[in-house]
Simulated scan of single mutants.
Amino acid sequence: MDGTIITLIAANAAFVGTHFIMSHPLRAPMVKMFGDLGFQVVYSVISIATLAWVYFAFKAAPPSDLPGSGQVGWIIATLLTLPAMVLFAGSVMGNPALPTPQAKEQARAAPKGVFTITRHPMMWGFALWALSHIVLFWSLRTTITALAMGILALVGAKLQDRKKKALMGDAWQQWESNTSFWPRVGGFAKAGPLPWTLGLIFFVFFSWLHWPLGGIRAGIWAWF
């Protein structure tokens, strides 16, 4: 196997692994050692460093060493990206998983917006984005990195449920009983105008950004 691919695998494993370790088994000991602010600083430094490693390893790996999935792959990828953007856009509004003083109150409220789809819209947004890149079958570097980010998102969501249940108790249990881990496709009709509007804007903009940043026309721009 190409050495650059091995380095990329190691970089992605470091990024994902340190996230899991620092967020769960080592979180309490690290907070005790560094304090809340110190923990956030250490967490951020390690995350930025490992993400930078992923970036440079990605750039060094071959850009197009797989045959690709053709027009069918591009259509599927485009169709996956739009709901991913809608989920991401709505995930910051009324999300009890985010660190906010209103978390318990939000968890006890009836789910609305993208939370009628899943209680982890941000994580599923990342997972669908990752899947959209995997189905393109364009390069090993893209497939490896997208798979790592998808694992980080979905395994992270499961671990987040466990952590939030311990931290929030009955409030999170009520949130779990009123929501779904797996996306409910019918919920997209009830996501609301703001997530859809922002999601469409994100979809058009980030699809367009593929060309100036990566030299690849993506999304609707692939056909223009």
Rank of each mutant, 00 (worst) to 15 (best):
D2I: 13
T4N: 10
I6S: 10
T7V: 07
T7Y: 06
I9P: 03
I9V: 12
A14H: 05
F15W: 03
F20D: 00
F20L: 02
I21V: 15
S23G: 04
L26Y: 02
R27I: 07
R27A: 08
A28H: 04
P29G: 15
K32F: 03
M33E: 04
F34P: 00
G35M: 04
L37D: 07
Q40I: 09
V41S: 03
V41W: 11
V42F: 08
S44G: 12
S44L: 09
V45M: 05
V45S: 05
T50W: 05
L51D: 00
L51A: 10
V54W: 00
F58K: 09
P62H: 14
P62M: 13
S64T: 11
D65Q: 08
P67G: 06
P67D: 07
S69W: 12
G70P: 00
G70K: 01
G70C: 05
Q71N: 10
W74M: 13
I76M: 05
I76Y: 07
I76G: 07
A77N: 01
A77E: 02
T78D: 10
P83L: 13
M85L: 14
V86P: 04
S91T: 05
V92F: 11
V92M: 09
M93E: 13
M93L: 12
N95H: 05
A97Q: 12
L98P: 01
L98E: 01
Q102P: 09
K104Y: 00
E105L: 01
E105G: 04
P111G: 00
P111T: 00
K112V: 06
G113M: 03
V114M: 06
V114A: 07
V114S: 02
I117T: 08
T118Y: 14
T118P: 02
P121L: 09
M122K: 04
M123Y: 12
M123F: 11
G125S: 08
G125W: 09
A127T: 06
S132T: 03
H133D: 01
I134Y: 01
V135K: 06
L136E: 08
W138M: 10
W138F: 13
W138K: 14
L140Y: 15
T142K: 08
I144M: 02
I144H: 11
T145S: 14
T145N: 09
A146T: 03
A146M: 13
L147G: 13
M149C: 09
M149F: 15
A153G: 08
L154E: 14
K163Q: 11
A166D: 03
L167H: 11
W175P: 06
E176H: 08
E176Q: 15
T179G: 04
S180Y: 15
F181C: 12
F181E: 09
W182H: 08
G186A: 14
G186E: 13
F188H: 05
A189H: 07
W196L: 09
T197H: 02
L198E: 07
F203A: 02
V204S: 10
F205V: 15
S207C: 10
S207N: 14
W208N: 08
W208C: 06
H210R: 01
H210E: 05
P212W: 09
P212Y: 07
G214K: 07
R217C: 02
R217T: 08
G219R: 02
W221Q: 01
F224I: 03
